[in-house]
Write a protein that binds this DNA or RNA. Structure first.
Lengths: 206, 206
DNA sequence: TGATAAACGGAACATTGTTCCGTATTTGGA
DNA sequence: TCCAAATACGGAACAATGTTCCGTTTATCA
């Protein structure tokens, strides 16, 4: 979260840094497994840490939720750059859109928390957009310039469209289980996504 | 809630009936004042009743929320009939739409509960629509027949439109306070509503 | 290596939903 | 009118959870 800023008084203790990371990682796992409403204690235990430690870094439960969310937004946005480096533009675009779709699907539970009215989450939508829109815009532009995708699609529109697709296709809640209906819904979602991607890359417009 | 059905074994005890009503009334008040997340104890105390009494009638907190919601839907829908009896068709229509708008505004907190994924609330949207759509349809038809409103508007569309208007204009949460911004938003909402009503009654179409 | 600041862990506290049960009230019949 | 059974009542007690507190442990640095 916060780097070594020159002006900062003291270094962060090694164990503290290690634990902060462990907590974030545990929270990510637990949120995915048991939903965003999972008890703080469960996260602390998974991280192999006492609740006190967790609360020192994240004074409110919502702070932890926000931190995990931002961290995953960062990771997903960062993947855009990686994919752009490792693949031809059209392919990078396709892959990232699938990656993004997966992000949305796994954040379903969180999404409902966002609209819960808790002011703690007010900043998240902006964070979401300000990271994803440029990330996608770059992929889109590169693909368009290479003639590997149409150029008349707005990044934000696409983000929203896929977001809607994905939320419509997943059962509400945010747990992870092996619910078969859930899997069918997912398959359907990914099929629709592929349709959009194909349209984007090979559609009649240029 | 449940009437005297001939097949029923025993009569409901008088104090029980009285208390059920007191609880519903108290819940309505408390939800309006402190939001739908208000503690059960506060509702019980307001009703002048122990929590045990409350829980016998409403085994889950959500049961109480649902009951209050339905009761207010009933009340609002019933007002449509009353207004139709006491006013000329166009006027009845106007008045009821304002009444409905007020209903929506005060149920903002509840609305977010609806989309919380809790299956306890799954039946509410249907209840909402199946009561309000016919109620409005009647007013609309009567007004149209009397030449006091245009006839090309769908009842459900109108319900949704006003619903959106009202939710957009109110600050999230569902509390009641004297927040001045909230009041401004409300004024704006009602101004927009009046615009729609005027369009409905005096617009160019017949 | 030892002093000190920083961090740790988890018991303890506060709030809330829910259950339990001894007590009080209503009801229907004698 | 009065009694016994049925019913309902109230609120203490329990469980789950977020959050705070503080005695103990550990990392850092000279």
């Amino acid at each position: 979260m916060q780097e070594e800023i020159p002006g900062t008084k003291k270094r962060i203790r090694a164990d503290a840094a290690r634990n902060e990371d462990a907590v974030l990682e545990a929270a990510k796992t637990v949120f995915a497994t048991s939903g965003v409403d999972a008890p703080v204690r469960e996260i602390a235990k998974t991280a192999g840490v006492g609740v006190g430690t967790l609360y020192r870094r994240f004074p409110k439960r919502s702070d932890l939720v926000v931190a995990v969310f931002k961290r995953e937004v960062d990771a997903c946005a960062a993947d855009a750059k990686t994919l752009a480096k490792d693949h031809p533009p059209g392919e990078a675009l396709s892959r990232w859109l699938r990656r993004y779709c997966q992000f949305i699907v796994t954040k379903k539970g969180l999404a409902s928390a966002l609209h819960s009215g808790d002011p703690a989450f007010d900043a998240l939508p902006d964070y979401f957009r300000s990271n994803f829109e440029p990330a996608l815009q770059n992929l889109l532009s590169a693909a368009a310039k290479a003639g590997e995708a149409r150029s008349d699609i707005d990044a934000y529109d696409l983000l929203r469209a896929i977001g809607n697709l994905a939320s419509a296709g997943s059962t509400s809640g945010g747990k992870a289980g092996d619910d078969p209906e859930h899997h069918e819904g997912m398959q359907h979602t990914y099929r629709m996504l592929d349709l959009m991607i194909d349209g984007l890359r090979y559609g009649k417009s240029g």
